[in-house]
C-alpha cells in the first residue's frame, strides 16, 4: 500500500470522529484501527508516524501510542 493511501485512510477515520473531544477522538481512532486494520497496515502506519508524515492528522499521530503493536508474522 502506498504511504499516501494509508495516510488518507487514517485521516478519513480521524475526520469521522472529528466532533469528539480530543481524548475520546484519539481513543476512537486507535480502537477503530485496532479493530479493522491488519497488522502490516498498522506497522506501516506506525512507521509513518515515527517518520513524521506531514499530511497525517495530528489526532492519528496522537493515537499511535494507543494502537496495538503488531507482531511480526
Amino acid at each position: 500500500m502506498t504511504p499516501e493511501k494509508l495516510v488518507y485512510m487514517a485521516n478519513q477515520i480521524a475526520t469521522a470522529f472529528a466532533r469528539l473531544p480530543e481524548d475520546a477522538a484519539v481513543a476512537a481512532i486507535a480502537d477503530h484501527i485496532d479493530a479493522f486494520w491488519d497488522p502490516r497496515m498498522r506497522a506501516h502506519l506506525l512507521d509513518l508516524v515515527e517518520a513524521g508524515a506531514p499530511d497525517l492528522s495530528p489526532r492519528v499521530a496522537a493515537a499511535a501510542g494507543r494502537i496495538r503493536k503488531p507482531e511480526a508474522a
Partner: peptide, 18 residues
Amino acid sequence: DEPGLRIPNMLDAAVGGT
C-alpha cells in the same frame, strides 16, 4: 487474534509484495 486484510487491502498488499 489479529484482524486480516480486507479485499482492497489484499490488493494493496499484493502490489506491495506482502
